Computed example of a mutant assay.
Amino acid sequence: MEIWQSSRPDFFLFASCEPDTACVTPGTYAIIGAASALGGATRMTVSIVVIMFELTGALTYVLPIMISVLISKWVGDALNARGIYESWIHFKGYPFLDNRDDNSSSVPDVPASQVYSRVEDLVSITATGHSIQTLQDLLHAHAFRGFPVIDNLKDATLLGYISRTELEFALNSALTARKLPPETGAHFALQPLSDPASSLDLRPWMDGTPITLNAKSTLQLAVNLFQKMGLRYVLFTEKGSLKGFLTKKDVWLVLNGAEESIKNEELVGDGRGIYRSQETEQETGLLGAEEDVAEDRREEPG
Rank of each mutant, 00 (worst) to 15 (best):
T237I: 03
G230F: 07
G230W: 06
G244C: 06
V254K: 11
Y233R: 15
K248A: 12
L253Y: 08
L253V: 01
E238P: 08
M229D: 02
E238S: 10
T247W: 02
K249D: 11
G244T: 01
F226K: 05
D250I: 09
D250G: 02
Y233G: 12
L231D: 10
G240V: 01
W252D: 12
V251P: 08
F245P: 00
M229K: 12
K243R: 08
E238F: 13
V254P: 12
M229F: 14
L231I: 13
F245Q: 02
Q227E: 06
T247N: 12
K243H: 08
W252R: 08
G240H: 03
L255M: 06
M229H: 15
W252N: 11
S241V: 13
L235V: 01
L246D: 00
L255W: 14
G244K: 01
Q227M: 03
E238G: 06
V254H: 02
M229R: 14
L255R: 14
W252V: 08
T237V: 15
L235D: 01
G240N: 09
E238V: 09
K228S: 14
D250Q: 07
F226A: 12
Q227N: 08
L242V: 04
L225H: 13
K243L: 11
Y233K: 12
L246I: 00
N256S: 07
L253P: 02
G240K: 09
V234E: 05
L255D: 05
D250A: 02
R232E: 07
F226R: 14
L246A: 01
G230H: 03
T247I: 05
L253T: 03
F236S: 04
K249W: 06
V251R: 05
D250R: 11
L255F: 04
G230K: 04
K228E: 15
V251E: 11
K249C: 01
F236V: 02
T237H: 03
L253K: 02
L231M: 11
R232S: 15
V234M: 14
L225D: 06
G244H: 01
L255V: 04
L225Q: 12
Y233L: 10
T237P: 07
K228A: 14
R232K: 02
K228L: 09
K243F: 01
V251N: 14
L242S: 11
G240Q: 11
V234G: 12
G244F: 03
T237G: 10
L253W: 06
S241D: 11
M229W: 15
L255I: 06
V234K: 05
F245A: 00
V254Q: 11
D250F: 10
